[in-house]
Simulated assay, not measured.
Amino acid sequence: MSESSEAARNKQLAVHGFTQFAAGDIDVLRTLLHEDFIEHSPGNPSGREAFITFITEAPVARARLDLKRVIADDDHVVMHYHMATDDDPRGIAVVDIWRLDNGQIVEHWDVVQPVPEAAQVPHGMF
Rank of each mutant, 00 (worst) to 15 (best):
D27F: 00
W109I: 07
A23F: 11
D110Q: 06
G24P: 05
R9T: 08
F126C: 05
D25S: 07
D96S: 13
W98Q: 15
T53Y: 15
A8K: 15
Y81R: 05
Q104M: 02
V70I: 06
H40T: 00
I97N: 06
L33V: 02
I71V: 13
I26M: 02
D27W: 00
V15A: 08
Q20Y: 00
K11R: 15
N44H: 14
D27I: 10
P122E: 01
E117K: 02
T19K: 14
A50I: 09
V94W: 09
F18H: 09
N102T: 15
S2G: 13
R69I: 06
E117N: 12
H40K: 04
D87Y: 00
H80K: 06
Q104T: 04
G47A: 01
V121S: 11
Q120N: 12
F54D: 07
I71G: 05
I92R: 09
D73E: 15
R30N: 10
V112F: 03
L65Y: 02
R90P: 02
G91V: 08
P114G: 08
M1W: 14
T19Q: 10
E117V: 10
V70F: 03
E57K: 11
P89C: 07
D73W: 15
D27N: 12
G43P: 07
V94L: 12
G91E: 09
D75L: 03
D87V: 00
V94H: 10
R69Y: 05
V111Q: 11
D66Q: 12
V115F: 02
P122I: 03
S5T: 15
I105L: 04
A72Y: 03
Q104S: 06
H40N: 12
V77R: 03
S2H: 13
D66L: 09
V106R: 10
V78D: 00
L29R: 01
R30P: 13
I55Y: 02
I71C: 03
E39A: 09
I97T: 14
A50V: 13
L33M: 06
H82Y: 08
F18I: 06
Q104K: 11
R9Q: 15
G124N: 08
A93M: 01
W109L: 09
A7R: 11
A72P: 05
A14K: 04
W109Y: 11
